[in-house]
Nucleic acid binder design. Sequence first.
DNA 1: CGCAGCGCCTGAAGGC
DNA 2: TGCCTTCAGGCGCTGC
Length: 266
Amino acid sequence: MPELPEVETIRRQLAPYLQGCSVQDACSHPSEKFTPAKDVIGTTIQELKRKGKYLIARLDDNRELIVHLGMTGSLTLAAAIPDDPYIRASWHLEGHKVLVFRDIRRFGRIRCVPAGRYDTIPTLANLGPDALSDEFTPESFYHALRNSRRRISTQLLSQRPVAGIGNIYSTEALWMVGIHPAKRQISRSAAAGLHAALIKVLRAGLSNGGTTFRDYRNVQGSKGKHQNALTCYGRSGQPCLRCGQPLQHRTYDSRTLTFCPKCQPC
DNA sequence: CGCAGCGCCTGAAGGC
DNA sequence: TGCCTTCAGGCGCTGC
């Protein structure tokens, strides 16, 4: 599933092509999740940004095109719209290229709003500091975590204390610092350690071009490499790489959380 | 206002 | 072989 490293990989690959490019035509799947793709016909993309897992294209009419890839979304550049039942939107760009949004499970979504007006996109409106930005500091992170009594994994996935984390990088960072995902309160020093671990695993994921567990592909259609570096996610039942105990998994809030029962005491 | 619970989606994988 | 069930889970929405 695309998390910060995957979305940033896509942003870096698309930005040089999209910036300054006009949108000449667009098509979309009939679902309201995707029809706003057509609202940008006739505009020119000025900049491609990212906030957490949201891709944001700033347009020349002071609006923004916002794309969330959900679980299975991908963006590619093609010469024509491929014959593929899972294409949810496409934009014909100046220069005869087509930007194609493919999303098997339709958990992704597309919106077009006046720049910065995120009141109808609740997670984006309440988004915490991006995990790879200067605003994400150990102190702000500790205070944000202390404001809630929810499980630490639930808080990380909520995008409020920090933006860009999904289940893969959450699982990896919690294993790295030995914090059980179901813990509800952590100390100031533990928060500082988790802050550093999150940045470390996200940077590693980014330098590996993202994690392809199943569906993720970059703009060229290639898989990432970080799945080969995972230490905990997807390894339930296999030995902990630190202590050898079999990793366990448990379902909280309908999400599978993997952890080492010895290194990550509850 | 915070948050738990549910619904959206469909392919892959496992059981019988 | 083929049908059925379960699983993966980010996020928006609803209602307590």
